[in-house]
């Protein structure tokens, strides 16, 4: 008889292999998902090094400067823009004039070469985004950029996944706020009752018929 005789534990090994394989595949998938959601990949909460350690906490929360003082085009254009050297110098020609931290800013003012900030929020080039429409329709900076006024060094509050954009485009009433609260970091839209927010959506004429989730709204 030339039949293969397996040792008695062979059956156990089969089971171990099967369960192990399932667990392994599950584990790999879970690890990939974890990686995809982790700050290592999404950069959420990870501050980047900047030429000048600019602090929003200092300038916005403590010195009470409005976002528009530095990101002046946010209401008018697609891009909020970065402050020009001139903008920093409007104060720092008189405040902290000798700080070594501000040397790059002063150099830039002298030479005319821009300070190059490392981008924190950067959508892929195949996505169209526009700040002015969101600001005009009562979506606050904090809904997308989080409590940036509490950050010493700027870090992402959002991985900027497509599902996140769509989530709000489906249910704008969850995030809409009165226009004069757009720049108020501490305002929580949910502090308003739902009916009031629905009324705001109607007042601002935000389309709720699903038009906002059409692919060409963002991929144009």
């Amino acid at each position: 008889m030339s039949a293969q005789i397996f040792p008695r534990n062979a059956n156990a090994l089969v089971w171990v292999s099967i369960i192990g394989l399932v667990l392994l595949i599950g584990g790999i998938v879970a690890a990939l998902v974890g990686l995809y959601l982790s700050p290592w990949y999404t950069e959420v909460g990870v501050a980047k090094e900047q030429p000048v350690p600019f602090s929003h906490k200092h300038h916005v929360d403590q010195l009470k400067i409005d976002c528009r003082y530095c990101h002046a085009t946010v209401e008018r254009a697609a891009h909020a823009g970065f402050p020009s050297t001139d903008t920093c110098m409007s104060c720092h020609s008189q405040v902290w004039t000798n700080s070594p931290l501000l040397q790059p800013v002063r150099d830039s003012y002298q030479s005319g070469e821009s300070v190059v900030w490392n981008r924190i929020y950067d959508l892929p080039d195949f996505v169209y985004f526009n700040h002015s429409v969101h600001v005009a329709k009562g979506i606050g900076c904090a809904s997308c950029h989080g409590r940036i006024d509490q950050q010493h060094l700027t870090a992402k509050a959002q991985p900027l996944y497509m599902g996140w954009c769509l989530g709000c485009h489906r249910n704008p009433e969850d995030n809409v706020r009165p226009r004069d609260e757009v720049f108020n970091m501490a305002f929580d839209p949910r502090s308003l009752p739902l009916e009031q927010r629905v009324a705001l959506v109607a007042e601002y004429q935000i389309p709720t018929d699903g038009r906002l989730t059409n692919c060409y709204v963002c991929h144009r």
């Binding site: 700050p39 909460g45 990870v46 501050a47 090094e49 350690p53 906490k57 700080s99 931290l101 989080g146 409590r147 509490q150 950050q151 010493h152 060094l153 700027t154 870090a155 509050a157």
Partner: peptide
């Protein structure tokens, strides 16, 4: 505090 994700030595180097 989302911002303090740099390691402490890095933070110490960047802050005055």
């Amino acid at each position: 505090d989302l911002s303090n994700t740099l390691n402490p030595t890095e933070v110490a180097r960047q802050l005055p």
